[in-house]
């Protein structure tokens, strides 16, 4: 069954691609900023999968050295992704803080509503300058 072999060999990669594309779509298509950040999270998580799956070896175990085991999965991607997760939550927190400030300044977290307010230009300008000076 060569077809099944191909599926087993690449299933993780395909899921990675699907998650990455879904995250990209949410980030590009949705106007809501919280949803954009969730989409960014999905995108980011697909990258974790992309890095961790090649590190796995069939029959291997977690990379904690013990005399009873000889085959270990690859620890290097684990280290890189550990870094990525923590940096990810830091950027997420910063993004959410910006969303809160945007909501306070414009009263909305929808991109369409924020960009489509030409009649309140003076008010919006005044508020945004207030944000800058704070």
């Amino acid at each position: 069954m060569p077809a099944l072999d191909v599926v087993i060999a690449h299933f993780n990669h395909w899921i990675t691609v699907v998650l990455m594309v879904a995250g990209l779509y949410v980030v590009v298509a949705r106007g809501n900023m919280v949803k954009k950040l969730v989409g960014l999270g999905v995108f980011q998580t697909s990258v974790y999968l992309l890095y961790i799956s090649p590190g796995k070896i069939f029959g291997g175990t977690a990379p904690i050295i013990d005399p009873r085991f000889t085959v270990y999965s690859n620890p290097l991607p684990h280290v890189l992704i550990l870094t990525a997760i923590v940096v990810g939550v830091a950027t997420l927190a910063l993004g959410l803080a910006l969303v809160v400030r945007i909501n306070e300044a414009y009263g909305s977290i929808e991109e369409d509503e924020i960009f489509g307010k030409p009649d309140e230009d003076g008010d919006g300008g005044g508020e945004s300058s207030g944000v800058g000076s704070r």
């Binding site: 923590v86 830091a90 927190a93 959410l96 803080a97 809160v100």
Partner: peptide
Amino acid sequence: TVSGTMTAIFYTFAER
């Protein structure tokens, strides 16, 4: 650093 940052971020979000 991590515990301090996470707690500080939570405090600032919760008190807003």
